[in-house]
Amino acid sequence: MSSSDGAFSRWRHSEGAQGLILVSPTFLYALLLLAAPLATIVAISFWTQDYLVMIREFTLANYIRAWTEPLFQTLMLRSVVIAVIVTAATVLLAFPIAYYVSFNVRPERKALWIFLITIPFWTSYLLRVFLWKVILGYNGVLNSGLLGLGLIDEPLTFILYNANAVVITLAHAWAPFAILPIFVALEKIDRALLEAGQDLGESRFTTFLRVTLPLAMPGVVAATLIVFIPTIGDYVTPKLVGGPDGAMISNMIQLQFMKLNNGPLGAALAISGMIIVTAISLIFLWLNRRYLKVRQ
């Protein structure tokens, strides 16, 4: 081992170097196919496009349009509002289920419950969304069922092709992603803590408020972010069940890139959306840390 004296050779055998060498294929892939494209998107958002030709001159025009034109403002605002409502609905609906499975289901049956909860999620996303359209439609399953039972006289119309439908569909689509983190957080709670709470004079309900809920917060926070971030960028649901009043920002991004040949504007919209998502997520995390003392 005479070469083992060289500085480079010694470096090559160090832990840091071996780790770097090992991670480098994956890292290079991410660099080439994620970092570089994202950087490109950022770059072209400052350019303009004339039909198919990119004009590489720095301009803020795309961002100005993205933030001032009423159409884009409406879409962006609607995306945020829908995402907030979907997130709130999903997490609020999910919490009792996670609580039930964690606290009321016998230990040996918990896995079964979790399996039951995740099965619907393994069917095609596209089909699940489409099936909601079938359920909620004018002549859909819900209306025809309710009519057949004589509960309504004419089909309900407020449930399809608007924001309501988007909320229902997305709350369904993201359910397992909200339930699982909360369930994991609840499972981690030492049951003796709850007994201690009651032993110290709290009722069941106040124990829940003062012990269980704070300890479950990390799961709730995780669930909130896991649902919120992709929801705001969802494309399929608004397109299928949203109708004109349910369209969201992704539909516009797709339109700009694929149909209107205005990549720069699409890029500016995409980046604006990402900035908004990131800002809201960070504010949310900060609020949590500040007021609920949730540690990551």
Partner: peptide, 30 residues
């Protein structure tokens, strides 16, 4: 292994988990 810039490198690799898919799609397309 511990290696330099581990957090940053792993962060980039795991980034698609928290990135809306449409962003990945658009960026790659461009």
């Amino acid at each position: 292994y511990r290696f330099p810039a581990k957090g940053g490198i792993m962060g980039l690799i795991m980034l698609p988990l928290v990135l809306p898919e449409i962003i990945v799609a658009v960026a790659l397309l461009v």
